[in-house]
Design a protein around this nucleic acid. Structure first.
Lengths: 339, 339
DNA sequence: TTGTATGCGTTATCAC
DNA sequence: GTGATAACGCATACAA
């Protein structure tokens, strides 16, 4: 598979490399129609495909970006990724995917590899352990957009849900349906931006709506311990009537518990979860959720990044909050009569 | 952000570019320990990061591969992607993600862009409309591995499920539980490899197990028409006792129908689906499924591609079949007594 | 309108 | 042990 270069095309067409280059870059203005046609023909004949690596070297532009996220298997990330790729494809960018697994070492290696590959920009859901590295990029004015997480001490443009509002919607929905004892469950570590903010939103909302809460009603736990924590909660004398799941994985755990213990939803326990899950409409009862505008978040990040790459610095490190949307179904409703 | 090059390091260290290059590539053999240390220090000082684009140009190797799939949002694809990226990361490869949406035009553009970017190899779930293009690559001996779909007239290494066996397992499980009227539902177009093979498997198995079937029991339909088709099927006088969903999306549609019509599973309709869905264990009743070894398929494709890139052509275009696994739960069981 | 020369940052081949 | 120099394939002044 010996590669055919611009030189081969030039020779065969009896013109110089520059002329072919002109042709390739659409600068037909000062070109004879016949040369144009000849070059076109030869290119087809030789099946010539320009080497973008060489082009990138010269132009210092790769039309490639890197996306660093925890794990593409998580639904939010999958959707965000798809949105990013869509926008990038429209604009002629390629995207390199990096699953950093919230592992700072891995994240660091990815960042360095991406830079070394001269990507034009990076979109990341950053861990908080590579702050200096990101800070370096940011200071160099390297195109950078964060998703879902805010890092201290640097104003990098960030796209994320209005997390406080999301939990506020949860509490509001449950309170509005007459539930007064509302607990919340979240994954640990509870230090990442969304988890932290969602808890804050809960606390504020509980106060605002005047519903009951106590320390035991806020459960932050690793996935594996959730069943035990749920058991403790539900067997306490002050058991809640309703439970908020701060993300899809947590909701799944709660549903497992519900199933094993044969609880009736919402009679025994009303539920609402942040993140729209695939089976919300299929489950019985259907599950009320707070949907994130995942597509908008991903697309927004990609659009902004591309603007930055193109030097249109319309955004100087703002935090962009996206609206959560309550999708009311039946797991959060108050059932007065037996059905 | 003026970039620091190997030349800067060389100058500052008082050596030549060649020596720095040697250092970078770990050829310390003939290098004085002190030069080595000096270079090391300078590199740290200058925060030098080698430009892999330049390196790629010279070496004709980008350590990047492209993955072309229909849509990362589909669960099978997400998992396969994650597996590929894992293996690639271990081996120092980067992966560019391409959502072709089963659109031949898009697919073609992606292939050309990837080649133009000099990727070292491509993993694809190909449409059948770019056969000539793939054939060209294959003839050039360009590293290429397919997943999930077999294309005629070229022996490209392909990783996919033993699809016939998958539906055979479905029929076997249902028949073994005493169901005798077993229908199957698949998405159209039913021409892609897995859909075609799964139908074949069904037909063979129905014969083998001697259970009843007829033309109406094989439903191939676009997603949007499935509700109507299901209604027709279930309201016919010869309604099936059990239904096989050939993939997760189809199963979702069936579950919607079940919910709307308040059917009892498995009493009114037993179910089993190919693809392990996230809520199989949470749904009531739990859902029997045939799991694909998605991780193994993705990892296998990546490993083989990397071997090919490295010229270890251990595999000459074989078709690798992966074993489906029956996960028996309750939607396929025969209930004799009321519970 | 087209050609020549040079550089992009690196590696490879030889000398020294 | 180390250095000079020529590629890699393309783009861009500037010349013609």
């Amino acid at each position: 598979m010996k590669t055919v270069t611009i030189g081969d095309v030039a020779k065969r067409a009896g013109v110089s490399k520059s002329t072919v280059s002109q042709y390739l870059n659409g600068r037909y203005e000062y070109m004879a129609v016949e040369t144009k046609e000849r070059i076109k023909k030869i290119i087809a004949e030789l099946d010539y495909n320009p080497n973008k690596i060489a082009r990138s070297l010269k132009q210092k532009k790769t039309t490639t970006i890197g996306v660093i996220l925890a794990n593409i298997l998580y639904s939010f990330n999958t959707k965000v990724m798809r949105a990013i790729e869509d926008i990038c494809n429209e604009s002629g960018y390629h995207v390199i995917i990096c699953n950093a697994d919230d592992n700072p070492e891995k994240e660091k290696r990815y960042i360095e590899m991406l830079l070394s590959k001269q990507v034009d920009g990076i979109i990341a859901m950053p861990t908080s352990s590579n702050i200096e590295l990101y800070q370096k990029l940011w200071k160099r004015n390297f195109p950078l957009v964060f998703i879902d997480r805010i890092l201290p001490d640097m104003k990098v443009s960030t796209m994320l849900l209005d997390n406080e509002k999301a939990t506020k919607l949860c509490v509001g929905e449950l309170a509005g349906n007459g539930y007064e004892k509302i607990a919340i469950m979240t994954m640990t570590p509870a230090t990442s931006t969304p988890r932290r903010e969602r808890l804050v939103g809960y606390k504020k909302a509980v106060e605002e709506y005047g519903v009951y809460t106590n320390g035991d009603y806020v459960i932050a736990s690793p996935i594996k311990e959730m069943q035990i924590r749920l058991e403790n909660l539900m067997e306490s004398q002050n058991r809640p009537e309703a439970l908020i799941a701060t993300n899809d994985l947590t909701l799944m755990e709660i549903l497992k518990y519900v199933r094993v213990n044969n609880l009736k939803v919402p009679e025994d326990l009303a539920l609402i979860g942040i993140d729209e899950i695939s089976f919300a409409d299929i489950y019985t009862p259907s599950l009320s959720t707070i949907a994130q505008p995942t597509f908008e978040i991903g697309a927004g990040a990609a659009e902004l990044l591309i603007e930055k790459i193109n030097g249109k610095e319309l955004d100087k490190g703002n935090v962009h909050r996206f609206e959560p949307e309550l999708i009311r179904r039946f797991s959060s409703v108050k059932i007065e009569l037996d059905v």
